[in-house]
């Protein structure tokens, strides 16, 4: 089966004063139609830059996106002209962001901001686009949608604004929704509602979701497959059950150890010692070795490749068992 989205050897870097900062350093992603792929990692691991690279939203300069392949619906996005990419964006390929408070324009009504995308891509007249915008607000369960469409963003709560963002992203029935930390800025109860909404909309529309988060709870709720990123690289890739049951990379094990669990008595949570390496001068060998409790001599010298550790399960660690 051909994948909806295939990313091979994506490298995104930014020019900074002291040189080039390699935010994403050769990652591969594959997502089939209707499936949900979770990308997980700490702040600064390159997961958001990965999303922006796929969307073609990395500003250049200072950014530079290179890849062996970014294919979406069989089309090579890197070869597309800026205009063709613009036609795709917001239509077949949509994105929602982490900060619903700042991601909506304060100067326009929410109805206007949804309708303008519809007008842009479908060429509908104002009234038809507005009607569609109201219908979308209803689909994301915003009460009194007709009235709310005339509201400015500052009148809505964070959860309501994220619903508006989702309505805007899904207004044109995209095949792929990229959700970058969609629940991070929200209260816990609202987080659950938004995840629930995303699940329901995914079932209704059959879209695929690329969800980017630092929160393994979100991954467990939504994802079919998981890619774990560390310092610009993929360190583990697995179906969601396999990842939670038998994580192979020490970093993934560390991430799972820092989640509180009800069924286990724990005096304190395990934290991963140390901090994310400086991306301007990553450590030699495995990038995780300075923080890894299992690190040995060869980890400091050579970088391990992503190797199979089980069915559809890969990890980049010298110590994982060979199949």
């Amino acid at each position: 089966m051909t994948a909806l989205l295939e990313v091979e050897d994506l490298r995104t870097s930014f020019k900074v004063e002291s040189g080039r900062f390699q935010a994403v350093d050769g990652i591969d992603l594959r997502l089939e139609a209707g499936r949900t792929l979770g990308v997980v990692g700490e702040s600064g691991c390159g997961k958001s830059v990965t999303a922006l690279s796929i969307m073609g939203l990395v500003a250049s300069p200072p950014g530079e996106v290179a890849a062996a392949k970014i294919r979406f619906e069989g089309r090579d996005l890197l070869a597309l002209s800026a205009d063709a990419m613009r036609d795709l964006r917001g239509d077949r390929l949509a994105m929602i962001f982490q900060e619903p408070m700042t991601s909506l324009n304060p100067a326009f009504t929410v109805g206007d901001q949804i309708a303008e995308a519809i007008q842009r891509h479908r060429g509908l007249d104002r009234a038809a686009a507005w009607a569609r915008a109201v219908e979308m607000l209803r689909r994301v369960h915003i009460p009194a949608a007709e009235a709310r469409a005339h509201d400015y963003p500052h009148k809505l709560s964070g959860g309501m604004r994220q619903r508006v963002m989702i309505a805007m992203a899904l207004a044109l029935d995209p095949k792929l929704l990229i959700a970058d930390e969609p629940t991070t800025a929200l209260d816990v109860t609202v987080q659950a509602q938004i995840l629930d909404l995303l699940r329901r909309l995914r079932a209704e529309s059959g879209m695929a979701i690329l969800i980017i988060t630092h929160d393994l709870g979100v991954i467990a709720e939504l994802a079919d497959d998981v890619t774990v990123m560390y310092a610009g690289k993929v360190v583990e890739r697995a179906p969601v059950e396999a990842l939670f049951e038998a994580p192979q990379h020490p970093y993934t094990i560390g991430l799972l150890g820092s989640i509180p669990r009800l069924e286990r008595e724990q005096a304190r949570l395990d934290a991963i010692e140390g901090v994310v390496p400086n991306p301007l001068s990553p450590p030699a060998g495995c990038r995780f070795h300075p923080r890894c409790p299992f690190a040995e001599a060869r980890c400091r010298e050579a970088e391990p490749g992503l190797g199979p550790v089980g069915p559809s399960h890969f990890a980049a660690c010298w110590r994982t068992p060979l199949p």
Binding site: M55, L57, R86, D87, L88, R89, G90, D91, A94, M95, F97, T102, S103, L104, N105, P106, E116, A117, R120, H121, M165, M168, A169
Partner: peptide, 10 residues
């Protein structure tokens, strides 16, 4: 919000 506007394909 400018990034959002670009993400809409405007």
């Amino acid at each position: 919000y400018v990034r959002t506007a670009r993400a809409k394909g405007l």
